[in-house]
């Protein structure tokens, strides 16, 4: 098939995927944006209310609190996951025995769904915390670190695989040249390995950043936002991340669906902005191979 024929059939080949994309993404997305300006019960009948949902979203203390909590959580887990995943990958590619078994073992947590992981870890944490007369749902600091441990445990294996393939793709000549020049191990790591690894780092930070920011299942199953804090009749859930806050807002009361939808629209903009900024920053550091 020559190029002209290919371009002639191009629309036919693209059509199914494009149709699916429209039905599965473009339409719900646009409809969702529209609903964020409405008061509605089911998506079928909505009443236009203008910006009031957005005003309520921005003045909701629980939402602002969940933003702060999410940012803190994201910072900690992105750093931890990437440092640990890189370290594990580095060790496993340095030729130790049984590297393949370790790789499999480290990757396995990733195959378990978030909700199940959350409940399993809740049992583990509670089993330990029982001895200290407390519970993961009672202390927001414990809840925070519980979530961090859970996400690390789940994601390190996945990021490790990406880092391993990155490490394996660095040409041996570079290391040999560094050795000839008398570079120490630390210097080799900093001046050769890391710059060559930037594409992997870009991908991994992007994935961990967005995954942590959008964390939902694990949050729901592990702490469900508990403990709550009372401020004048308003309950602020202290381990509630943004996605869970949006979900909970949706079912709060009869008028809250639109507010939840507005929060979701704000959330989308935030995640997109953060992701793009991060991509821009790490891309700049990538070097030509």
């Amino acid at each position: 098939m020559n190029k002209r024929q290919l371009s002639k059939y191009f629309p036919i080949f693209v059509l199914p995927a494009f149709a699916a994309f429209c039905v599965g993404f473009v339409y719900p997305f646009l409809h969702g944006i529209y609903l964020s300006f409405c008061n509605f019960r089911t998506t079928g009948d909505a009443k236009w209310v203008g910006l009031s949902n957005y005003i309520q979203a921005f003045t909701d203390r629980g939402f602002l609190y969940s933003f702060v909590f999410t940012v803190a959580f994201t910072l900690v887990s992105v750093v931890l996951i990437n440092v640990l995943a890189f370290t594990v990958a580095y060790v496993l590619t340095s030729g130790i025995r049984g590297a393949n078994i370790f790789r499999t073992v480290f990757f396995m947590p990733n195959l378990i769904g978030g909700v199940i992981l959350g409940y399993i870890w809740q049992i583990i944490f509670d089993g330990i915390l029982k001895n200290y007369a407390t519970n993961i749902k009672l202390d927001s600091t414990l809840g925070f670190w519980g979530l961090v441990i859970l996400l690390c445990w789940q994601q390190i294996g996945y990021m490790m695989i990406i880092y391993i393939s990155g490490l394996n793709s660095i040409p041996d000549q570079l290391y040999e040249a560094a050795k000839v020049d008398g570079a120490t191990k630390w210097q080799t790591l900093r001046k050769v390995t890391l710059p060559m690894m930037m594409p992997s780092i870009t991908i991994c930070t992007f994935l961990t950043l967005t995954n942590s920011f959008k964390l939902f299942d694990q949050n729901l199953a592990l702490t469900a936002g508990e403990p709550g804090m009372q401020i004048g009749g308003e309950t602020i859930y202290r381990t509630e991340m943004m996605a869970l806050n949006i979900y909970n807002t949706f079912y709060q009361n009869l008028n809250s669906r639109g507010v939840g939808q507005a929060k979701a629209a704000i959330f989308f903009l935030l995640v997109a902005a953060i992701g793009l900024v991060q991509l821009y920053l790490t891309r700049r550091k990538e070097v030509e191979q």
Binding site: L138, G228, M229, E234, T235, Y251, Q252, N253
Partner: peptide, 22 residues
């Protein structure tokens, strides 16, 4: 009871009162 949210607020407060954290 005006909403689910009310019940949840009371629920979490009861939990914490029981544990002595509120």
């Amino acid at each position: 009871i005006p909403s689910e949210n009310w019940k949840n607020g009371v629920g979490t407060a009861l939990t914490q009162y029981a544990a002595g954290t509120a």
